[in-house]
Amino acid sequence: MFSPIVSSDDVQFIVEYSSTLLECINVGDLRLSFDYSAQQLFVSVSDSGIGITKDQQSLLLSEFTQADISRLTLF
């Protein structure tokens, strides 16, 4: 019997996360890489954007907040 590598929730997260990333990038590249090893899926994201500080990195998987209010009117 077929056993999926990732759940539908995982796929939904990847799709929504990717969509959000694409909305925020006006110019540059976005790369998603997937690696399946030892029964775990690893997802890497890289882009050519302006980057974020170490403090901001700790907030990546927390509840959404608008980091730069000046960009609010763009979306």
Results as ranks from 00 to 15, higher is better:
residue 30 L to E: 04
residue 51 G to R: 00
residue 71 R to S: 14
residue 51 G to D: 02
residue 29 D to Q: 11
residue 33 S to L: 10
residue 22 L to M: 13
residue 67 A to V: 07
residue 55 D to Q: 13
residue 59 L to D: 10
residue 69 I to L: 13
residue 40 Q to P: 02
residue 41 L to T: 00
residue 11 V to L: 15
residue 44 S to M: 09
residue 22 L to T: 04
residue 53 T to W: 01
residue 29 D to F: 12
residue 21 L to S: 03
residue 71 R to E: 15
residue 55 D to A: 15
residue 19 S to L: 12
residue 10 D to A: 12
residue 39 Q to N: 14
residue 12 Q to M: 08
residue 21 L to F: 01
residue 16 E to P: 04
residue 35 D to I: 07
residue 12 Q to C: 08
residue 58 S to Y: 01
residue 43 V to C: 03
residue 10 D to G: 11
residue 37 S to H: 11
residue 34 F to G: 05
residue 36 Y to V: 14
residue 25 I to A: 05
residue 66 Q to L: 11
residue 61 L to Q: 07
residue 71 R to I: 10
residue 25 I to G: 03
residue 13 F to S: 03
residue 23 E to M: 14
residue 66 Q to R: 07
residue 29 D to M: 14
residue 24 C to Y: 06
residue 12 Q to A: 15
residue 36 Y to L: 10
residue 60 L to A: 07
residue 59 L to N: 06
residue 43 V to P: 02
residue 18 S to K: 06
residue 27 V to F: 10
residue 44 S to A: 13
residue 37 S to L: 13
residue 21 L to Y: 01
residue 35 D to G: 10
residue 54 K to H: 13
residue 28 G to H: 01
residue 71 R to M: 13
residue 62 S to T: 15
residue 18 S to Q: 05
residue 56 Q to S: 12
residue 19 S to G: 10
residue 38 A to W: 07
residue 60 L to W: 03
residue 33 S to G: 14
residue 50 I to G: 09
residue 18 S to Y: 05
residue 50 I to F: 07
residue 55 D to C: 05
residue 55 D to F: 05
residue 43 V to A: 00
residue 37 S to V: 09
residue 32 L to S: 03
residue 45 V to K: 00
residue 29 D to C: 12
residue 25 I to Q: 05
residue 10 D to W: 09
residue 65 T to K: 14
residue 52 I to S: 03
residue 46 S to E: 15
residue 25 I to N: 04
residue 70 S to C: 06
residue 38 A to C: 09
residue 60 L to R: 04
residue 63 E to D: 14
residue 53 T to V: 03
residue 26 N to S: 15
residue 68 D to Q: 11
residue 47 D to E: 04
residue 27 V to T: 14
residue 67 A to N: 10
residue 41 L to I: 01
residue 28 G to W: 00
residue 71 R to P: 02
residue 11 V to F: 13
residue 57 Q to Y: 08
residue 26 N to Y: 12
residue 49 G to E: 01
